[in-house]
Each structure stands twice: as structure tokens, then as C-alpha cells.
Write a protein that binds this DNA or RNA. Structure first.
Lengths: 340, 340
DNA sequence: CTGAAAGCGCTTACAG
DNA sequence: CTGAAAGCGCTTACAG
């Protein structure tokens, strides 16, 4: 089982009695060949089970036909679904996928973007989930060919693709207001992040448009189960200062419900809850959770299309922001405030 | 913004006044250099922001320092968690990860294994979830450097790593038997697959060891939500021929519970349910689902270690099978059979 | 239409 | 200790 040399273009060329140039051209489609020759070459390829060496091809062509995808955490179902959609799209287009998980460590983000700058991948789909001090943005601006997805890197001038977070917040708020809620807690991610800002803005707007007094209390932390637990504890410690909670991710909702249930707080009798993301099996929860659904797969598909469609030579075409629509999935976790 | 030529080894060498050989050796650590020279080179690298071109390096070295991971479906939380664990391990070792989703299409599996044979990746972690007609096995045997994870490819002679499925089935069966169940339905994946065979065997063994009459009814299909729904419908159509159901994956459990709930069948009052996998938020389900937990991350970590540790020259060391322990997580979906 | 040859950017025997 | 040179396996002007 010695690492037998793989068959190369040259082997094929010899077997077919032509030059490597010809074989290479046939493979790359830039050629009309006499069908006799063509058949001979194709036979040689089959006989030798030839497959081009991608490393050589990449070196020679100066591009890799692979795109990089950096996400905070692959195990998170939201990102997993996104990765899955990107992979499927990439595969359709003959592109390979290089996957990087940053696990929320800024250093890793930096190094991946640097890698792109060096042509290791042909483009990058970039998803962060923590604030940037400007370093990342400037790096992105000088390397180009990255599209930012899901969460913003404010000073980066590249195409951006988000869910319609503001409208998501609005839908949640309207649903809550329809049931008579006026005091609601927004349990979200880091305050600096665009998703949190926009979702809570939308929420406020929906409550405000009723023309009656209202209050939004912000619990801002991170998009994690642990923060969801914290939010629930705080809510309890503060003696339930609201009649409803808008949990801004599946993870937050999971932690929140976990603690609320453990403490015997009934949803929606004592407090109503609306979630965000809706990628987990929320319909099986007790109670089934009403939530804003993000178009996760569409986000992944569109992100790749954007990367490929963008004319990277035209600076003015770069600074775009595209929003994908969200919807509310009504289940059973919202009821009118109890009259206690 | 023309694609400015990236700085190469040669640029660094010139800037430092040495040969590319010297720089290359310094980078690859096979060299003691006078510290003055060393500093000069390092300064040049820093000044020029040099980073080696991985495509050239791969071509030259004949290896890629990347490992391939093929999974049926990335969006599935079980596989997502596995991918996440592998990615983290790979990153620790300086290995890149190439990800492929087969979406259950045999043709795609074949082509990825072929790619490995051509040295595009240094090794492959392979996860299938459908029966093989022998084609895959023979391909795997002739390319080598693949470890099979989670589900078997029977005729392949390579290291294999599974969860202890038999024991998982046994734990489920024992728990059910402890509560007095004697007639249970096994709702699992394809009958040919090792996971299904072993889990149902374990289940039977646990029931049998009580020394009383028992019956296991097998519903075999696939590890999907849709099959879970089918299983529930069949269970209902057959007028509930058992007092408990062992759902052999989170997906199956989800589909099953969905339909049972919709039909007003109470768990665990009318039928007990035990799940398998336990990667989703089963503790928030109504009722919280008792399940066998798979060591998903450990599976990923160990798989990579196996790939790296195996001595691929020694045929006798290849045919190994390693089992990772599972455990039962008791929640609230099992009760004694109703006396109706 | 077809091929010889240079080049992509590294690594690594082989010499000095 | 250090370097010139060949080689990895492709692609692609450039000639014929």
C-alpha cells in the first residue's frame, strides 16, 4: 500500500497519444476536438481513472473554487441550518466549502479573513455574533470578497444580508399588543448588535402605535441558553415586572422556559412568551411556543448568490443591505395578561 | 483593486537577503539559524505580511493538511453537533475541514471517497445512513484512510466507531420493563442498518431477561420526522398494539409525538415513549422526554483521533470497532401501562 | 487544430 | 550552514 503516484494529466496524454495541453483543454471545455481524438482521450481518462489534482489546478489558476464560511458555532441549530443551505448551494455550483467555527473568539475571525486575503478561498461568507472594535471591519474592507450575513460588522463596506429583524420585533409586539399586553420584557443579545437593536425597536414600535401607555424593559446579554436562564431568574427576582417576554432567539427561549417551568410559573397563564428563530421543535414544547420564524435556509442560499453576483470591481455596488422577510408562527404561548 | 499579486516566499527571501530555501526551512522548523539571520527573515515576513500559499504547499508536499467529513445532512442537530466536535478537534491540530453533505444520495458518497483516493484530503471521516450494495465498501477498501462513524458500511475493512447501540436499546428496554411494560414498539431506521439492529436487539434482551412473556413489534423505516409521523399513524391504525414506544432517534420521536399529541393521545398515560439521541431540547417537551443519550461530541473527537492514530500500513490494525458508552436520561415520558 | 514551454509558489534532495 | 535547481501537476499564453 505504498502511496502509489496518482495518475496525472501526463499519463493520460501519453495513453491517448496527444499532448497534455490538449487533454487539459478538453477537460476545461475550451476546445472542439475531432471526435475520434476526443473519444480516445476520454477512453484513456476512464481506463486510468484519472481525476485532476485540485491543488495543482488551484495553484495554476490562482483560484480555489472553494468558498469559506465562518460561523460562531456549528452545533447551534440556527447556524447548522445556515451551513447546510450554503453547502447545498455551493455544491450545485461546483464549489467546495471550507468551514470555520469561531466559537466567539475574535482572533479566529481575524485569521480567517486574512486567509481569504491570501487567496486561499475565493470568497467568504462571514457571520459574527459579537461587537467589533473596528479591526475586523478594516480587515474586511481591505480584503474584499466577503459578504456579511445575519449580524452586522458596522464599518465594513461589503454586501450585507440580514433577516428583517425590525419587522420581526414588530410582529411580536403586535401579537402581544393584540392580546392586551402593555409591559413586555425584551430578552435579547448584546446591546451593540444590530439584531438586538432592530428587534427591540420593532417591538417598541408595535406597542407604541396603539397610542396607549406601554413599557419595554430590556434584558440584554447574549444569544445563549445560559442567558435565557439568567433572564428568567431576573424576571422572577424582580417579581415579574411584565406580563410578557419576547425572547430573541431559540436558545434564550429554551433557557427561559426551563427556569420558568422549574419555578412553576405557568406559560401563558402567568406570563406570555414569544420566541425568535423557530428552528428548533418549538411546536412540541409545553406550551407550543409562538415565535418569529427566520428564513434561515434562504439566508444561506441568498448569501452565496450575493457573493457570486457582486461585481467586486465597483465600489458603489458594494455597500448594499438586503433584508429577508420573517413571519410569525402563532402557537400557544401567548394569552391575555392575567387580571391578578 | 486589481488582484494584486500576493507576496511570495521569493519576496521575503529578497527582502531578507537570503534564499527561498532558507526561508522555507525556517518556516518549517527544520533549521537552526544564526539568530541575526533569523530575526532579519522574521522581520521581512512581518513587514510584507507574508503568508504561505497553501495550494502551492499542498502540491509540493503531496498532502493537504485537511480532512474530509462526509455526513448525510448538516442541518440535522445530531450531525451538526458531530461536525462541530470534529471541526474543533481538527482546528486544534492545525487541520482544515472540508465538509460534504450527501443528502442521502449514494452517488455523492462515491465521489467524495474517490476524491480522497486522489489525495485531495488526507483522510476521511465517513458517516452514511443507508445500506450499501458493496460498491462503497470496495471503494473504501481500496482508498484507505477513512474511518467509519456512527453507522456501518459492513464490508469495509477500516476502523469503525459507533455508539453502544445495543446497550442503548438495553437501557431503554430495562427502563420500560421496570415500569411493567411487556409489549413495546420499536420505531427505528432501516432494518439493514447496524444501529437499528443493535438497538432493537438490546431492547429485546432487556425484556427477555425478565423471564416473562413479552413482545417487540418493529416499525422500521428511516431516521426522519416523517417516519415518526408514519409510525404514530400506524400505531393508531392498529389500535395501539403496545403500551410503550421506543423511538430510535430525536427525529422519529418528534414526528411521533407530534401526531400522538394532535390525536389527543396522552404521553405517558396512554402510551410511554423513550427516545434516542437526546440532542434536541427534549427536556422542554410535553412531557419531558426520557431518552438514551448518545455521546455525540465524543464520537466526533474520537473519530478524528482514530484517523490520526491509525497505522495505515498495518492491515491487521485496520479492522477495529470501538464503542462509546451511552446513558439513559430519565425524564417524564414513561409510566406504568394503563390498566384499561 | 495542436504542442512545447513557462509559470503558479512552494518543498526538498543534492551540492557546495 | 546555505543555496541552485528540480519537481509537485496543472493552465495558458505563445508559436507553429
Amino acid at each position: 500500500m505504498s502511496p502509489k503516484r496518482a495518475t496525472s494529466l501526463k499519463d493520460v496524454a501519453e495513453a491517448a497519444g496527444v499532448s497534455v495541453t490538449t487533454v487539459s483543454r478538453l477537460l476545461n471545455g475550451s476546445l472542439e476536438l475531432p471526435s475520434e481524438t476526443k473519444l480516445r482521450i476520454e477512453k484513456a481518462i476512464r481506463d486510468l481513472k484519472y481525476e485532476p489534482n485540485p491543488h495543482a489546478r488551484r495553484l495554476s489558476r490562482g483560484r480555489s473554487d472553494t468558498i469559506g464560511l465562518v460561523v460562531p458555532d456549528i452545533a447551534n441549530p440556527f447556524f447548522a441550518t445556515l451551513v447546510s443551505a450554503v453547502e447545498e448551494e455551493a455544491d450545485k455550483r461546483g464549489l467546495a466549502l471550507s468551514l470555520y467555527a469561531t466559537l466567539n473568539r475574535p482572533g479566529r475571525e481575524i485569521s480567517y479573513v486574512t486567509a481569504l486575503g491570501r487567496n486561499h478561498v475565493d470568497g467568504l461568507l462571514f457571520i459574527t455574533n459579537h461587537p467589533d472594535n473596528g479591526e475586523l471591519a478594516s480587515l474586511i474592507n481591505q480584503t474584499g470578497k466577503v459578504v456579511i450575513v445575519d449580524e452586522d460588522v458596522p464599518d465594513a463596506v461589503v454586501p450585507k444580508l440580514f433577516s428583517d429583524n425590525d419587522h420581526g420585533g414588530y410582529l411580536a409586539g403586535r401579537h402581544l399588543a393584540d392580546h392586551g399586553h402593555r409591559r413586555v420584557i425584551y430578552a435579547g443579545g448584546p446591546r451593540e448588535m444590530i439584531s438586538t437593536r432592530r428587534r427591540s425597536q420593532g417591538l417598541e414600535r408595535a406597542l407604541k402605535e396603539r397610542g396607549e401607555p406601554f413599557q419595554v424593559i430590556r434584558y440584554e446579554g447574549s444569544y445563549t441558553v445560559e442567558f435565557g436562564r439568567e433572564a428568567a431568574r431576573r424576571f422572577l427576582d424582580e417579581s415579574m415586572p411584565a406580563t410578557a417576554i419576547f425572547a430573541s432567539s431559540d436558545e434564550i427561549a429554551i433557557g427561559l422556559i426551563e427556569v420558568l417551568r422549574a419555578q412553576g410559573v405557568s406559560i401563558p397563564d402567568e406570563v406570555s412568551v414569544v420566541g425568535f428563530d423557530d428552528v428548533g421543535p418549538l411546536h412540541l414544547f409545553a406550551p407550543p411556543l409562538t415565535a418569529i420564524r427566520q428564513p434561515v435556509r434562504a439566508l444561506g442560499e441568498r448569501a452565496l448568490a450575493l457573493l457570486l453576483e457582486t461585481n467586486w470591481q465597483e465600489p458603489e455596488s458594494l455597500a448594499s443591505e438586503e433584508l429577508l422577510p420573517v413571519e410569525i408562527v402563532v402557537r400557544n404561548s401567548v394569552a391575555p395578561p392575567s387580571k391578578s
